[in-house]
Design a binder for these strands. Sequence first.
DNA 1: TTTTGTGAATTGCTTCACAGCA
DNA 2: TGCTGTGAAGCAATTCACAAAA
Lengths: 214, 214
Amino acid sequence: MAKTDHVPLPAVRRLSLYLRQLEVLHAGDHQTVSSKQLGAALGISDAQIRKDLAYFGQFGHPGIGYRVPELILRVRRILGTDKTSNVLLVGAGNLGRALFSFRGFSKKGFEIVAIFDNNPEKVGRVLDGPTKVTIQPTAEMDATVRDHAIRLGILAVPGPVAQAVADEMVSAGIRALLNFAPVTLQVGKEVAVSSVDLAVHLEQLSFQLGCVSG
Amino acid sequence: MAKTDHVPLPAVRRLSLYLRQLEVLHAGDHQTVSSKQLGAALGISDAQIRKDLAYFGQFGHPGIGYRVPELILRVRRILGTDKTSNVLLVGAGNLGRALFSFRGFSKKGFEIVAIFDNNPEKVGRVLDGPTKVTIQPTAEMDATVRDHAIRLGILAVPGPVAQAVADEMVSAGIRALLNFAPVTLQVGKEVAVSSVDLAVHLEQLSFQLGCVSG
DNA sequence: TTTTGTGAATTGCTTCACAGCA
DNA sequence: TGCTGTGAAGCAATTCACAAAA
């Protein structure tokens, strides 16, 4: 089938973008799309797209392009989102609650099934998002992770406690972390980490502004 | 001073991480730090750090390392965050409000001075974050951008309207966009865009999980 | 000794260009 | 003709390794 040996990491990131655009095309009843069309919509070269997809197999049809519904299914399988994954969230502050209430994860194959926070005023409260979930203390994390077979966790706690909470999550069995705290997490290499730091993004933009004018 | 000609983009992203760690060291009263120490804290090689910094000038002292307070000032100047930038936010939904209430931007040199949303139930309401800001309709964007000399905007609106809102922002004078909507924005190349798509991050992690086990 | 700054070597990623298929 | 898949070429980024400085 595919040559799964060594895929450039940027290619995997782009795969998500392809999927996103394919879903738009599917909703618009497009049956096929060429690498050129897809690239134009995403600001990526057509050769790049063909090469990225070729890392995983042969999906295209010469003279035709890619069949949209077929490619969607196959990309989802590659990303592991053809089946829904249970996700836990730690941190029921403003950001955590906003993330939970975001409808649209489930369409992408992710469902937040548990929320943790150690603030005694929050524990026991029920949050209403795509589903209703009761805030639990982190002491219950081990059992919940086991019972729901959770491997993916979102970390939305303040920076100063992030490392300690991440350690708890990993020790409870979490193997992939989406980190919103502005710190570099130290975790074993059996754990995947993806970080979103708003300040870093703003600084990027600030730098780019400085390149063109004062 | 520096050879500002062609700096690798990844180097600029890392510069933000260096600054973040330097601020931690500064708070802990460290006077100097070596590229090796900095790298160990961030999971980056020492050679990488020296090369990144060298793109912008000579900041280090052989045998000593880098003087922390001095390097902080110089990195901030490079990133353009030595002076505070006014920022506008469009979208006062769950995510937008969470972003606004986040204390910590101002320490990094960014201040959200205006919030826009076209929902009539929201216009006129006052949000209480680091400062109090009244939600305005987007029709007032041109004047506000001009009056506050805003160049940086955060886009936290639903995907289907994101492109239209981005167009408004650019036409009002915004020159850098931090986009949280799950779409690829089409903008002229005089506008810098940085996107955060939560689904893309989760899909990355899902893929990495799939690499090791079922 | 310790540590920087940097040319050289290397690795990794992207683009090119074209054979092959519909 | 239109389009994919892919080796080869080109470009970009990282690591190596060492002279120079404190």
